[in-house]
């Protein structure tokens, strides 16, 4: 009832209707990046782009997250921490590959130290290319997930 009242109050006030409503909680894991994607993700959440306006929040724990944002060519040493973070997420959960390294494009490094593209480790359903993707591109890709309204696959 209260919510109906609120909606009515908003109609009277002539406020614009919100777009598709929703929110997503994001947890970031650096699986072996050059720190470029981290800088740009921070900027996307910062004052100029302000992801939180769109219902997108970076949270401190995978326990609170809907999306695992993974950066970097997955290193051998980050494989277990990455799997543990994914396993700690409640379902439904999505995995996003943030940046070209996570997407396995032009991977650089010694074969002994790299596991390979993120896709070989976790089920990726969101792909954000770029080296690194700009804050605008990150914001646009994540807004697209809300706008599409699809929960996506629940992942493994």
């Amino acid at each position: 009832m209260l919510i109906k009242d609120l909606a009515a109050a908003r109609r009277r006030a002539g406020l614009p209707r919100p777009g598709r409503r929703g929110s997503l909680a994001l947890r970031h894991v650096d699986a072996g990046s050059c720190n470029g994607c981290e800088h740009e993700l921070q900027s996307a959440a910062g004052p100029a782009y302000d992801l939180s306006r769109f219902g997108l929040h970076i949270v401190a724990s995978p326990r609170h997250a809907d999306i695992l944002l993974v950066t970097g060519s997955v290193t051998r040493r980050m494989l277990e921490p990455l799997r543990a973070a994914h396993a700690a997420m409640p379902e439904p959960r999505l995995v996003a590959a943030l940046g070209d390294c996570a997407l396995g494009c032009g991977l650089l490094g010694h074969a002994d130290e790299l596991v390979g593209p993120l896709e070989q480790v976790l089920p990726v359903s969101i792909r954000i290319p770029g080296c690194p993707p700009s804050p605008e591109e990150i914001a646009a890709a994540l807004r697209g997930v809300i706008a599409s309204g699809r929960p996506g696959p629940t992942g493994g």
Binding site: S33, C34, N35, H39, G72, S73, T75, L108, G109, H110
Partner: peptide, 29 residues
């Protein structure tokens, strides 16, 4: 060293211009 990618070892055998890409990938900032 959780993010150790072996960039220096990967550079061995490369031409100097190829090695530059590996050095760039070491750190964006």
């Amino acid at each position: 060293f959780y993010k150790h990618r072996g960039l220096e070892r990967a550079a061995v055998g490369c031409r100097p211009d190829e090695g530059l890409a590996l050095v760039r990938r070491a750190c964006a900032a």
